[in-house]
Structure formats: C-alpha cells, structure tokens
Amino acid sequence: MDWSAIFLTVRLALLVCAILLVVGVPIAWWLSFTRWRWKFLVESIVALPLVLPPTVLGFYVLVAMGSNSPVGRWYQSLTGHGLPFTFEGLAIASVIYSLPFAVQPMAAGFSQVDRDLINASSILGASRIRTFIRIVLPLSIGGVVTGLVLSFAHTLGEFGVVLMVGGNIPGVTRTVSIAIYDQAQALDYAGANRMALLLMAFSFVTLSITYALNRRIWAVWPMHR
C-alpha cells in the first residue's frame, strides 16, 4: 500500500475544501442574488470543469502557471520556484477543477432561502454579513456541506489534471489515482486493487455521511412555516 500517496491525497483534498469554502461561498452567494444580465457567462465559466476533459483543463492551467505567463513569473519571483509539478500548483488546479462541485450545491442552497426572511433580517438592522451568518447559512447548511463533501470526494479521485499539472512525483504530487494507474501498468493488480478498493470504500462512506447528515438537518430545522 502506497501510504505516502494516500496521505498526500487526503492532505490535498482537505486543503482544496478549505480554499473552496473561502472562495466558493462568496461566488455562490453572488450567483444566487445578483441580477446582472451577464451572470450566465460567469455560471458557464464556473461549470466548465464539469464538461471539459481534465487534460484540456490541466493543459491550460499548466500554461497559465508556467514561467512564460505573468501569473507563473509573479509566483516565481515571490517564492523562488515555479508552480507546475509542485503541491501548491496541484492544489490550485484542483480548486479550479472542483469549483463547480462546491459552488453549484451552495448556490442551490442559498437560492432556496426565502427572500422574505433575508429582507426581514435587513429591515431589522442586520448587516449583510450578519444576515448571512445568522439566517442564510443555517437555512442552507445542507447545500454548503454537500458542496464541500463533493469537492473532497472529487479531489480524491482526480487523475487527468494531476497528471498534467502535477506529474508523478512521490510525496509531492503522486496521488492515489496516479499510484493505482502505475500499479495497473506494472501489472501489480493486487496492489492496484487494494488502493482502488480503499478509495471506493472511502468515497462511499463519505457520501453516506453527507446524505445522513443532510437528512437530520432537514428534520431538525423544519422548512415549513
């Protein structure tokens, strides 16, 4: 069993979830409430990773992070090394890749919150932040948790983007899915099977926990008035 790949993958997935919580919630919030006429373009950009082959996405992320791009040069001047084929680069690519998995359930959750309640909160003198924390978040927690869990599970299993952006460096960018691929290529079917089974069991348990949690949340906070 390639434990270093497993730990690396879990560390990556946790980091991606944390970043998506900070980045995804404001995007989802904005998408749920803006009346901007070009909003659909932003929705399309966020949803792109759902339909693009991971290699295409990975390729452009690689180009965008490379030493010929402004972003890549800026990062290099800041840290002294480039982004491609590093853990940080992999994390950035994974955030982009999992963005729709976080944003879509969150936005769906926010949109379901009754506008009258949000208006009532503002009229009672609550700031936007307070309204969000006290009213919107508790009433859409199911969507937020679902978004995070889906991102986590999605990051655990990603392959194409990792291969393009991260390569296959043990302890740095070698994730579980890459390890499985290597083992299968080397005809080590028993090893590949152990890792694959672990990934599958883990994904199943994670999803079951989310759905079980959501069920309880709905029961605790009845949505009818």
Partner: peptide, 15 residues
C-alpha cells in the same frame, strides 16, 4: 431604520 410588516409571515424557522 424603518419598520416593515411583510405580506407573508417572516419568522425565522430555525430560531
């Protein structure tokens, strides 16, 4: 700082 009574009840269901 205005008061407003909406047409529907606007009680926060989770509080």
């Amino acid at each position: 700082r205005l008061g407003y009574v909406s047409q529907n009840l606007a009680l926060f269901p989770h509080l």
